[in-house]
Write a protein that binds this DNA or RNA. Structure first.
Lengths: 211, 211
DNA sequence: TATGATAACAGACAAAAGTATGTTTTATTA
DNA sequence: TAATAAAACATACTTTTGTCTGTTATCATA
């Protein structure tokens, strides 16, 4: 390729690699080479080496497609949207995936998934029918958190309250009653950590699982 | 590894590969092999081949780490959140970036950015104070769209209406009036395509662009 | 228990990808 | 303008990874 001023191609390569990593497709050295019309592998390699040395990239030596963004803790992953709330444990419910949405993960291993809201019991909290809520299971639940709970095999989204050793599930809609289920009928699925509303038809279903 | 009932190891391998792909780290055949303590590469390979044949995975032949989830365009990018609505044009407001959030892009080059909601004029549409709206500029605006508009240098979020050759900006809160600004005082910044509410403190600021 | 299907194993080869050494060309700056 | 640093090139070698052929073991079912 044509000679550029110092740093210019470097930055372009960084952007390219970064984009590929965000897309979940780590490039090879030679893919970088051809993407920038270089005639030698080493041209790409030395840029990548430099980016690692500068700390802008991280590399697993020897492994193919081994370049990564540093500080992978705060990266975006795709979380599945579970179409319906399944009766069994969530790991088994993979068949009912409605689609995937990009989510920011702050820790390494966390179970975050999306859930389509059904009904308007949380309307006055700004959670409307059709919204997608992001739920983290294996999460500590505190007073006032909005949670996804299973009562007698049915799933609902409510505000969590503990009142005198008894659990209350409060709707945010005057038309609905406060629930006080027996502990044995109740399972807290997880905590709602985010609400999303898509005002435009965006197909999240473009990567359906056929299995 | 020990012999399992037909389909069992198949599904486990699928889960493993899927998780790796969601994490942005496509595995090699041999990585699958060792993850499942198999003594032959072919053991892993034949399972992967079968998953492709079943349509549960997709593969780029020949390429290393070439297994993908079917139909994955994997086009999530990070969009900037502009802290405050600036007075000038938006391109210049890059210094006021509050952070980045992952966004699903359906097309190639589109100008999508986030904006922190200030005020409760859209409350009954489920857009609350502190929410982040995703705005696409360069977007066609239709009757009833929710838009970000600049009126006399001040930015607001309202529903867009065209009534007898005159533009109306309607709040979704009875305490606010309908606006009918003069065309020369009005600039439509873009269309709100998504609303997000973070119920938990998530630092969005950790992913600065180094280049 | 016989039989076909699935699972796991073994070893080898070919292609892809990482790495290394040295040279030429261009940019930067003193 | 000369010296230095950075960029790009050429080629070769090593390791990793994908793929192939064939065999043995276990499962499912009649």
């Amino acid at each position: 390729m044509a000679y550029t001023k110092p740093g210019v191609t470097r930055n372009r390569i960084y952007q390219f690699v970064r984009q590929r990593l965000l897309d979940g497709e780590p490039p090879t050295v030679r893919e970088v080479q051809t993407a920038f019309h270089m005639r030698a592998v080493q041209s790409a390699k030395s840029h990548l080496d430099a980016l690692v040395k500068e700390g802008r990239l991280v590399k697993v030596p020897g492994k193919s497609r081994g370049y990564r963004l540093p500080g992978t803790k705060h990266s975006s992953r795709l979380a599945p949207i579970l179409g319906r709330v399944p009766a069994g444990p969530f790991n088994i419910a993979v068949e009912e995936i409605e689609g995937y949405i990009p989510v920011r993960f702050n820790s390494e291993e966390q179970t975050v998934f999306g859930l389509r809201v059904n009904g308007d019991s949380m309307m006055s909290a700004g959670i409307l029918h059709g919204d997608v809520v992001l739920v983290r299971s294996e999460s500590e639940i505190h007073q006032g958190d909005i949670v996804v709970a299973m009562i007698d095999g049915e799933a609902t989204i409510k505000e969590f309250r503990r009142v005198r050793n008894r659990i209350q599930l409060r709707p945010h809609n005057d038309a609905y009653p406060i629930l006080s289920p027996k502990p044995e009928d109740l399972t807290i699925i997880g905590k709602v950590i985010e609400v999303r509303r898509y005002l435009e038809a965006i197909s999240l279903i473009d990567e359906e699982l056929n299995g």
